[in-house]
Amino acid sequence: MNQLYELLHEYRVIESERLVLRPLELEDAQAMNQYASDPETTYFVFGTHKDLAQTKHDLAFYFLKEPLGKYAIVEKESNRMIGTIDYHSINEATKAAELGYTLHKDYWGKGYMSEACETLIKVGFEKIGFNYLSAMHDVRNPASGRVMEKAGLHYLGVLPYHRMDNKDPLRPVDDAYYHMTKEQFFEKRDKK
């Protein structure tokens, strides 16, 4: 029997060197709104939030309605919620998932997102039992690709005309696709 969701429940809180990944709460709306209302932070990720009410709605709708595999990124030193990361598009039959993330721009370039991704990849393969993890980004956002590479994901190629832009519904987006199989993960881990 596949215990994927039971294991996602067991690993609701995960710690790394500088971060705690934990379930979101409605009380996180204020911290989330600080970056969700910033057009620079949200440009490639989702529509910029107009106000705190929209953030509360989206937080409840996406993160609280189905919370397994969705995490607040909390900086240990300040105990501040600085972003989110999640396993989404989970395929229970093949034990595959996609990683998605957003980080407050004040924390860009400090390795926090690579650390959060590495942590979810490690827990995903070692504890939860995923067979395959992937992530993608708009080709116009190469910084996200650098995060994926630092976290150990392998570049696979570009998915042309993959989706429509969330800011300009007339512009198709080409997504760069990264991935890792459990075999690749364990081979790399065991060489260390």
Results as ranks from 00 to 15, higher is better:
residue 1 M to F: 13
residue 7 L to E: 12
residue 9 H to T: 14
residue 10 E to G: 05
residue 11 Y to F: 13
residue 13 V to M: 08
residue 13 V to I: 14
residue 14 I to D: 06
residue 14 I to R: 04
residue 16 S to Y: 07
residue 16 S to T: 06
residue 16 S to M: 02
residue 17 E to F: 01
residue 17 E to N: 12
residue 20 V to R: 12
residue 20 V to I: 15
residue 22 R to A: 04
residue 22 R to Q: 09
residue 22 R to Y: 05
residue 24 L to Y: 10
residue 24 L to W: 11
residue 24 L to V: 13
residue 25 E to W: 08
residue 25 E to Q: 14
residue 25 E to Y: 12
residue 26 L to P: 01
residue 27 E to W: 07
residue 29 A to T: 02
residue 29 A to F: 06
residue 30 Q to A: 15
residue 32 M to E: 10
residue 33 N to V: 03
residue 36 A to Q: 10
residue 37 S to E: 02
residue 40 E to K: 13
residue 41 T to E: 03
residue 42 T to N: 06
residue 43 Y to A: 13
residue 43 Y to Q: 14
residue 44 F to L: 06
residue 46 F to G: 12
residue 46 F to D: 13
residue 47 G to R: 14
residue 52 L to V: 06
residue 53 A to R: 12
residue 53 A to C: 07
residue 54 Q to A: 13
residue 54 Q to H: 11
residue 56 K to T: 09
residue 62 Y to L: 12
residue 62 Y to I: 15
residue 63 F to R: 08
residue 63 F to G: 04
residue 64 L to M: 11
residue 64 L to F: 02
residue 65 K to D: 12
residue 66 E to L: 10
residue 66 E to D: 15
residue 68 L to F: 11
residue 69 G to D: 01
residue 70 K to T: 07
residue 73 I to D: 02
residue 77 E to G: 07
residue 80 R to S: 11
residue 81 M to P: 04
residue 81 M to E: 10
residue 82 I to C: 03
residue 83 G to F: 00
residue 84 T to M: 10
residue 86 D to F: 08
residue 91 N to C: 10
residue 92 E to P: 07
residue 94 T to C: 11
residue 96 A to T: 11
residue 97 A to D: 01
residue 99 L to Y: 02
residue 100 G to F: 02
residue 100 G to Y: 01
residue 102 T to C: 14
residue 103 L to S: 02
residue 110 K to P: 02
residue 113 M to I: 01
residue 114 S to D: 00
residue 117 C to I: 08
residue 118 E to F: 09
residue 119 T to S: 07
residue 120 L to F: 03
residue 124 G to S: 02
residue 127 K to P: 03
residue 129 G to T: 08
residue 130 F to W: 03
residue 131 N to M: 04
residue 132 Y to A: 01
residue 133 L to G: 04
residue 133 L to Q: 08
residue 139 V to K: 09
residue 140 R to K: 13
residue 142 P to M: 05
residue 143 A to Q: 11
residue 143 A to G: 05
residue 144 S to D: 06
residue 146 R to P: 05
residue 149 E to T: 13
residue 151 A to G: 06
residue 153 L to F: 01
residue 153 L to Q: 06
residue 154 H to M: 13
residue 155 Y to M: 05
residue 159 L to T: 12
residue 161 Y to I: 09
residue 165 D to F: 03
residue 165 D to G: 01
residue 171 R to Q: 15
residue 171 R to G: 00
residue 176 A to C: 07
residue 177 Y to E: 08
residue 178 Y to H: 09
residue 179 H to V: 11
residue 183 E to A: 12
residue 183 E to G: 10
residue 184 Q to H: 09
residue 187 E to A: 15
residue 187 E to K: 13
residue 190 D to R: 11
